[in-house]
Each structure stands twice: as structure tokens, then as C-alpha cells.
Amino acid sequence: MELLNIKELLVAFSMYKKGFRKYELEVIHQLSLNVNSGEIVAVVGSSGSGKSILAEAVLGLLPKNSHMHGEITYKGQKVDKKSIRKYMGTDIAYIPQSIDHLDPIMKVGKQVMGVHGSKERQRKLFKQYGLPEDTEKKYPFQCSGGMARRVLVTSALMGKPDLIIADEPTPGLDLKMALEALKDFRELADAGTGILLITHDIDLALGVADRIAVFYAGSVLEVAPVEDFVKHKDRLRHPYSQALINALPQNNFEPIRGTQPYAGDLFSGCLFAPRCHMRDDKCACDVPMMDVRGGKVRCVHAADG
């Protein structure tokens, strides 16, 4: 069943450049993505490229100076900033990037219980995540970084959510520990929960996700099953995904030229075109999301390659 569907999302911030001129900075544009129940979808992109904004946009947490266009549906229902609230904490859970999201002056047990939770479930979750029993009486500053992260995860699981949106849930952990930490995500997904995992760590995504969405310059260029990134690399549809996988140290470690365009000076057409070896005149046109070989891709040449 389809849980979350994002169609042609655009998020822009109004900012001041030096001085007094105001302008609109488009951080996310033409972003389409869906999450089904029972699967982990990983959004992979470099840090600072606006991935966190995606989570905030879906959850209606964007700051005031932003605006949003496009359509977001949850279980077929169209949702916006206000109507998403009724799902939050019960149907949809959010695991934020920073442990600063814990209330510093509330005991963690109470925070994890939240509004809808029960003491028994909180104890059960703490036990399951290896948090000592006295943790519930501690304040966040008394917990170590690792414990605080687990507290965040347990509070997300409190309401037995159908959809979890996790923004970099394992920062600073090496791959082995991160995969270990995400083992529970796998179990949850196998039990039917849909998980949107936002991360900069492609190895982590390869290790845990079912589908991977490649995030580039504010948009998703390709969504494909994880096998395409690991075993059948020739099946990858977008030249950027191919280049990304090829540049990994465990593969060829070979970079292509150029850099991601800065959000302030985007151009029309395919944003990867200036770095692409398949570039031609067609790339300057608007490129729609297409279904190719069981995945989705935004590239006019995907079908012929």
C-alpha cells in the first residue's frame, strides 16, 4: 500500500542577499517520491544539499520565510501543513537529525511517552533498545550521545507508526555500528512500516534500504531498487547515479568533473547536464520523471541507454 506520495514538490526560501534586496532561494524543486508500507526508501545526497528540508516540508515544519508547492498525500489523503498534524506522533513519526530536539528540562521517560503513549510500552521499548531502567528518570543532559539517539528512536516508535521519517539517524557512527543501529528499522519495515531514511552516507543506504532515491541539487534524479546500485550497476538509469556509484572507494574511485550547482544559480532543464557525457540539446528542455526498467528516472536519455 502506498503511504506517502510526494509530487513535484518545490520549496523556496525568501532570503536577503547582502544589503536590502530580497530574493527567493529554491532549495527543492521537481521532487517526486513515494514510500510504500513495508519498505525502506533512502534519500541519498551530499550534506547541505537540502535533504533535511525535504523531511521538514513533508512534516509541515518549515520556517516562516519559506513557501511550498506541489502535492503531498498520506494514504491517499492530500495533506498540508495543518492536516498533517493529526497524523503526527501516532501514524507518522519523525526522528530528527540532532539530539537537541529533546526537551532539556523534561525527564526522558515522560518525553518518550508523549501525549498518546503508555508507561508499559515505554518500558518495553527502552528494554528493547538496551536503555537501562533508570534512564526514564534522567534528563537528556545526563544521557550520553548514543543513549539520547536511542531515546529519540524509542519516542518515534511509541505510537506504533505506519510511517517513519528518519533524518540522519546515525550521525558519527561508522558503517558497522550504523547498520547495527538500523537493524531494528529493517524489522519494523518487515512488519509493515514504511520508512523514509534521509542520509548522506551511501554505504549505509546500500546496506539497509529497499529503494534508493538519488538526490542532486534539490531534486530526486532517480529512484531505483537497491540491487541496481550493488549488483546490476549497468541497470542504473541516470548518468549521475552511475557516476556516483563508480566514484565509491570500493568500486572504481573515479570522479567525474564539475560540482553540484549552487541553489542560488540554477538553470532550466536537466541540472546534471553540464557534467554529463550524454548531454545534447534535448537536455535543456523540461525533463519529466519517467518509468524505466522498474525504476523512476529524470533523464531524457535513460530509455535509449
Binding site: 536590502f20 534586496r21 530580497k22 530574493y23 527567493e24 524543486h29 532550466s268 523540461d286
Partner: peptide, 15 residues
Amino acid sequence: MHKYHKKSRILNKRV
């Protein structure tokens, strides 16, 4: 496509 891009207003909060 980028229709919300770089639209500047003269009288904004800073001014």
C-alpha cells in the same frame, strides 16, 4: 520551471 526564483521586492522588511 524556476518561476519563484530571484523575484525581488523593493519594499521588504529590511528596507
